[in-house]
């Protein structure tokens, strides 16, 4: 019985210490600066290598959207209100893609020309749901 109880204490110690270490490790990991999602400012300050696809996001700059007449090619600029990058893309755009709205582009960034070649454009919409009539009344 005594041995049994001793064993139980060892088990509890083992569990407790391991979980404490793990919590400590998580906190020290969160101290690290990590960046997998780039804003235009991030791209300017420390550009990633162009051989790897990344995700960049921000707002679509007003009056920056240019459509090609004969094809689906488009060009626009993403801004985080401090810096901007120009993005080119070929394909259909989602309905919610609008100027001054959030967008997430996946593709390759070429820091020499400050250009982002996207192969996927996704619209990010916010969590606000407002009826049309209310919106009109507010404006």
């Amino acid at each position: 019985m005594k041995q049994h109880r001793k064993n139980r204490i060892y088990v509890i110690l083992f569990v407790g210490i391991s979980i404490l270490i793990s919590i400590f490790l998580v906190f020290s990991a969160l101290q690290e600066n990590i960046n997998l999602f780039y804003s235009p400012t991030d791209l300017k300050n420390n550009p990633p290598m162009s051989d790897r696809s990344i995700r960049a996001g921000g707002l679509v700059k007003e009056n920056s959207l240019k459509r090609d007449k004969d094809s689906l090619k488009i060009k626009f600029e993403i801004t985080d209100l401090k810096n901007t990058i120009s993005v080119s893309y070929e394909g259909l755009l989602p309905d919610l893609f609008k100027e001054n709205k959030g967008v997430v582009a996946t593709g390759y960034f070429y820091s020499t020309s400050n250009e982002f070649i996207a192969y996927e454009i996704l619209a990010k919409h916010d969590e606000n749901y407002v009826p049309k009539e209310v919106k009109k009344a507010l404006e």
Binding site: S18, I19, I21, S22, L25, V26, A29, E32, N35
Partner: peptide
């Protein structure tokens, strides 16, 4: 970025 992921992996291990 590697230290971040290694630390998290270690945390997951200890957990």
């Amino acid at each position: 970025n590697i230290t971040f992921f290694i630390l998290l992996l270690l945390a997951l291990l200890f957990f």
